[in-house]
Design a protein around this nucleic acid. Structure first.
Length: 747
DNA sequence: GTTCTAGAAC
DNA sequence: GTTCTAGAAC
């Protein structure tokens, strides 16, 4: 694109992309600057670009291009909260080398919401109760801009006075002047976390600025010894895949005075749901530390991939902790995302008050009677939480068996709640290898590992359900009223707590409805045996699933393949292979079992193991055939937990998901959440238990859309598809294990 | 006004 | 499973 600047030969138009939620003050910012600037500005506002009404992004782009061509400096006044939304505007630079700036109005969500609600007749028409829900939702997908996106300058405003300063800077910017490049105004995240601690503790002292403290290189452990080490730095110390990916743009990032933009993201989320957990079974229960560390990392990887905006923190009392250092190094080896998981040295009952690590949920290494005492973590948690925890626990369950967890909402009168901000305690019981303690497994590590895996799975699942309910509840809160926002912190925290209770009841109700209610409604059973049993009861208790006429197609083909010869890729005695009629990727075939009465995974029993293996082998063969034609493909083989079509069928699907038939959330999530069960895992499960574990939770299919590689969230299918068409991230570690992926780049 | 989702019908 | 479409979201 040629920029015709002849009219204004020496003028240097700039493009300023505002970034901020509704109510963050983007329009006001533009208006204030334009009111007394000596530059010629054009404000491109998506809310008004369509003859005073909301328009499209394309309209904004062309209007901005025209403005720049005319030598005007341009404000892009739309939310631009994530990288993808900004990328097209950055392309406006073309070959002209104009400066492109971002001004980030990163003000508290609370403020944006109350402004959005108060405004009447605002151009964005985002009024009333909907505002909170919309703002909250938009902020969930917020990605702060980075210089590496192509910005010359980024100004972060985290308070109204920052905004005033930024307005001042742009007002004074003459037509021939330039602003210096780099990141500006981004606060030291330490001070942010510190000030929130102080706010929480209602202390007036100015926090110690730890920014200049030396990092101990190689020590990834954060600490609550009372010295207030920076959490942010701790998290940065373990390199993650994400961090590594930024190295390529180091030269640009180098212009900034601040190490990296990601840091801010991590700690500004001090409301991020966080589970702090002790290592289970490795102290008094004498479980092998190395094996335990493997299991912790394995389960953390599994669950952190599932959980969008949540953190898991392994806590131990001392820097000398063997289990902490083992987990730390294994997590680093596996490139575990350090925003989602890290280790921490401190007292699990004083994480917030002595270290500023806000954890709304803590796990307790409980005993089977769920009683206080016994020393260790259990004693100190019951001690710190007061009698409230004991009575709340009693309400939920009387005992817990190894491998299971019990979620207990903590009464707001508990000191752990008021002092530390803990809303839930999850009691977990792991395997015991200590002959002095009940249920000793006598070094049976085959059984022990399984129980420990189940214990962590139950723990993390319990935490995930709290997170889900809280998010759900926050949305509802937003719809109701915002008056609560103005009440005192303690008061609104109580309200939150009550809301969470309500959410818990919701959970119980839905569980009851499913018929799994057994008096331990908040017990999360990680044991596969028990889970399968309850699934089994459900299917046995009712008649078999009724298949609609449209769902019979595969069944008919399996029964009479000769009638469909032309449509099939392969026919044998026990198996049929065909192209999926509506492929959801470049290559997508189905391997059908031909046995009658084998409609779906829940029908699978031990006797079907050989069919499963055969289907897998045939699936692999076809994947390899496709790979020989196009080596860039990667395949995954697996089953839908609850298929729509009758007749057990294995999906062999390339991981590009490049298909016009992939149209909705259900399509995406059926291949990219736990709803999709890898063939290798099904074979393992059936070998061991004679049954397959089904993940038939409806929530899985309506989960938010996340990239299957980098796990970034996207608001809708078109945006997701445009992202995956260019996402360069490697596949997550859990998919690279156990042969779940097939293809050149997975070896 | 356009884009996108989600529920009903098949 | 898809198609159709009302209406929500933007």
């Amino acid at each position: 694109m040629d920029m015709d600047l002849d009219n204004n030969k020496d003028a240097k138009p700039i493009l300023v992309i505002l970034v901020g939620a509704p109510g963050s003050g983007k329009s006001t910012f533009c208006e204030e600057v334009m009111r007394s600037s000596s530059r010629t500005w054009l404000r491109v506002c998506q809310d008004t670009i369509g003859n005073g009404k909301a328009g499209s992004k394309a309209q904004c782009l062309s209007s901005a291009a025209r403005g720049l061509k005319d030598g005007k400096s341009v404000f892009i006044d739309r939310c631009n909260l994530n990288r993808e939304q900004r990328s097209d505007f950055l392309k406006l630079r073309g070959e002209s080398q104009i400066d492109i700036h971002a001004v980030v109005l990163d003000l508290p969500a609370k403020l944006c919401i109350s402004r959005s609600v108060k405004r009447s007749g605002h151009e964005g028409n985002l009024q009333g109760g909907k505002a909170a829900a919309v703002v909250n939702r938009m902020l969930q997908s917020k990605e702060l801009p980075k210089l590496s996106e192509g910005f010359n300058r980024i100004t972060f405003c985290q308070s109204e006075s920052n905004v005033k300063d930024a307005i001042d800077t742009y007002q004074k910017l003459g037509p021939l002047e330039n602003l210096s490049h780099g990141c500006f105004g981004q606060k030291n995240p330490d001070s942010k976390i510190q000030s929130s601690i102080m706010k929480f503790l209602k202390k007036a002292e100015v926090p110690v600025d730890t920014a200049s403290k030396e990092n101990t290189i190689g020590d990834s452990t954060s600490q609550t010894s009372g010295k207030n080490d920076s959490l942010c730095k701790d998290m940065e110390k373990i390199p993650s895949a994400h961090d590594n990916s930024k190295l390529g743009s180091k030269d640009i990032e180098g212009q900034t005075n601040i190490p990296a933009g990601s840091c801010h993201n991590q700690v500004s989320l001090d409301d991020t749901p966080t589970l702090a957990f002790p290592s289970i079974s490795t102290a008094d229960f004498q479980f092998n530390h190395d094996k335990a560390a493997d299991i912790i990392v394995e389960k953390v990887v599994e669950y952190s991939n599932k959980m969008e905006n949540a953190r898991l923190v392994l806590v131990d009392l001392t820097h000398r902790s063997k289990i902490l250092s083992l987990v730390k190094s294994k997590a680093a080896e596996k490139n575990v995302d350090t925003q989602k998981f890290f280790t921490h040295v401190g007292d699990i009952t004083r994480l917030y008050s002595t270290g500023g690590l806000r954890c709304n949920v803590i796990a307790n290494a409980a005993n089977w009677r769920l009683k206080p005492g016994g020393g260790g973590v259990n004693a100190s948690i019951f001690d710190a939480a007061g009698p409230e925890l004991e009575s709340a626990t009693k309400e939920k369950a009387k005992t817990v068996s190894p491998g299971n967890a019990v979620v207990v909402p903590l009464p707001s009168s508990s000191p752990l709640f008021t002092r530390e901000g803990v809303t839930h305690v999850i009691h977990v019981l792991g395997p015991n290898m200590n002959p002095q303690r009940p249920n000793c497994l006598n070094n049976d590590y085959e059984r022990g590992c399984k129980v420990l895996q189940d214990a962590y799975a139950s723990l993390f699942e319990g935490f995930a359900s709290i997170v889900r309910n809280t998010v759900h509840q926050n949305e509802n809160l937003g719809k109701k009223s915002l008056e609560l926002q103005d009440q005192s912190e303690q008061c609104s925290r109580n309200t939150d707590q009550k809301s969470k209770r309500d959410a818990d009841h919701e959970l119980e109700k839905s569980k009851k409805y499913k018929g799994t209610h057994d008096g331990f409604d908040t017990t999360f059973t990680g044991s596969r045996d028990e889970k399968v049993d309850s699934e089994h009861k459900r299917t046995d208790g009712s008649t078999k699933k009724a298949w609609g006429s449209w769902a019979q197609a595969l069944h008919l083909i399996a029964m009479h393949p000769e009638k469909h010869k032309d449509d099939l890729l392969e026919i044998s005695e026990d198996i049929v292979v065909l192209n999926d009629m509506y492929p959801k990727a470049q290559k997508h075939v189905l391997v059908l079992a031909r046995s009658g009465g084998l409609d779906c995974l829940s029908d699978v029993q031990n006797e079907h193991l050989s069919v499963l293996k055969r289907m897998h082998a045939v699936g692999l063969k076809w994947a390899e055939k496709f790979l020989s034609e196009n080596s860039s493909l990667v395949f995954r083989l697996g089953y839908h937990s609850v298929p729509s079509m009758r007749q057990l069928h294995l999906h062999v699907i390339s991981q590009d998901f490049d298909s016009k038939h992939l149209k909705n959330k259900k399509h995406w999530n059926s291949f990219n959440t736990a709803f999709f069960r890898d063939s290798v895992d099904i074979i393992d499960e059936v070998s061991i238990h004679g049954k397959a574990t089904l993940k038939d939770d409806d929530k899985l299919l309506s989960m938010e859309l996340r990239c299957h590689k980098c796990k970034s969230a996207h608001p809708n299918i078109p945006r997701l598809k445009s992202h995956i068409s260019s996402c360069q991230a490697p596949f997550p570690a859990n998919l690279l294990e156990n042969g779940r992926l097939v293809g050149a780049c997975t070896k």
